[in-house]
Design a protein around this nucleic acid. Structure first.
Lengths: 266, 266
DNA sequence: ACACTTGTTTCATAATGTGAAATTATAATA
DNA sequence: TATTATAATTTCACATTATGAAACAAGTGT
């Protein structure tokens, strides 16, 4: 029934009786910051769907404003309804609600931008961001996905995740984003071990040149990370001698959130 | 086949061969700021779906992280994947991309929060928000839905919409949100006529007490609104004598965006 | 112990979703 | 302006997939 290709690309088992929905979601997930606009043919090819099927599903999504079309080219983009749903999802997210006050305080104390992030499909997802006293920063990238191996939050999340999960992510090729990005699995593994001991991760110019971040994990009872928070800014402000106190602040904040979630020892 | 109730509630025709997808989307749309968490039974009842069907669809959505469950109660919430999709949708939205620089300038000039909003399902959807010089304001409610009849942007969008659309919205009962909310259809109709002439709408405490907003339409070639922008703040700052210059600023900015969209006379 | 509500599984049935092929629209090239 | 190529829609016969009644399990409160 299905072409082999499709089975290979999307190994994901779907709940029986939900093929159409699973496929519609696959279509939506194809859109990204890197490729925000798709032509029907390309999208059908990329998702391994029959063109007709893709068209039908997209029509349904379009009718509900989950996707919209470029009136000139006919190309598909994500629609405004998703912006609305994303808003509801954000504002009702318990983790985000609990963390926000702490995040605000952290941003004030440190004077840098503070973020809350979670692990999601081989990526780190930015759940919230509070700009530091130093303006700029715009909470522009809430909802962005970032690579796990090049972010402080990503490393911390990996370090405090079940072995299997970190192993899986370490197995994939590690894309270099700057000269300083760690791309050797072995080196990253060693780093993770150290982070597990110290409870803090630091990246310096590994995601983008001149950007420094310090992250700590939000842990549950089993010392598993449910989220990570971070403080980040330009290397000019986040100098070597300031890092220890930054680390202390971030760890304190992370522990406070863990406690409020009812996880960490009260 | 379908119980009558469902047909009544969701008169929306769906593209043939997409029942399951349309239903899954209906489930997602049930979540709102007012009701962000649903129990399976209630949700099935509210959407008019069979409990089993709702369960199956929700399971598919859960597997893809579009919904998540409260581990204790088992209740459903919107999931983190929607936050990610909403982010992509926002950052790739052409209207938002084009408008942002103008919105930033407007916020600087006026010193107040500037927003970009569109009409969506009987509501006004906040697409973007730039905080004014006076801090506070948090771009907290991007992705929120606001009532049409109690917002400056809503009125402006209605005033510059096809007759049928405004008629439909005026037919529905107008909820009072404050003492000053306009709830008389006839009064609102008169206001819309004036707004159509002047090209600006102003609300003073009609959405929430002490909040004043000034809005202007982003128009296409046929003088139809595709969006509205506004400036808003406390009545203490947005005093009667400042309103005329605010109106001028907002109108200028709106026209600039219209032009950049290729709509308004160059 | 009882009734009552909520979530989950099973399974027979046919309605719904599917995809090959034909058709129309659009763009690119001669 | 023909001519080809490519992309977007529509059509339609077919059976896979979605459906919902009913049974079951797991709480919750009385």
């Amino acid at each position: 029934m299905f072409p082999v290709k499709e089975a290979e690309l999307h190994a994901t088992e779907f709940y029986p009786g939900t093929q159409a929905v699973a496929r519609a979601i696959a279509l939506l997930k194809a859109f990204s910051d890197a490729q925000p606009e798709w032509t029907l043919n390309d999208l059908a090819r990329a998702t391994g769907l029959n063109k007709t099927t893709a068209f039908r599903l997209l029509s349904a999504l379009e009718a509900e404003h989950l996707v919209m079309r470029n009136p000139l080219s006919g190309a598909y983009r994500l629609g405004v309804e998703l912006i609305a749903m994303g808003g509801v999802a954000m504002r009702s997210n318990p983790l985000r609600t609990v963390s926000r006050p702490t995040l605000v305080t952290l941003a004030e104390q440190s004077g840098e931008a503070a973020t809350l992030e979670v692990l999601m499909d081989n990526h780190v997802l930015v759940l919230d961001e509070v700009a530091g006293g130093n303006p700029m920063g715009m909470t522009q990238d809430v909802g962005s996905r970032l690579p796990v191996h090049a972010t402080a939050t990503g490393k911390v999340l990996l370090a405090f995740s079940p072995e299997e999960q970190s192993a899986k992510l370490l197995a994939a090729p590690l894309q270099p984003l700057t000269e300083r990005t760690v791309t050797e699995p072995e080196q990253l593994r060693r780093e993770l071990a150290r982070i597990r001991q110290e409870g803090v991760a630091i990246t310096q110019g590994e995601l983008e040149p001149g950007f420094v971040a310090v992250a700590a994990p939000v842990l549950d009872r089993e010392r598993q990370a449910v989220a990570a928070i971070s403080v980040g800014g330009p290397s000019l402000r986040l100098t070597a001698e300031r890092l220890p106190q930054m680390a202390a602040m971030v760890q304190m904040a992370a522990r406070q959130i863990s406690r409020q979630l009812g996880y960490w020892p009260g």
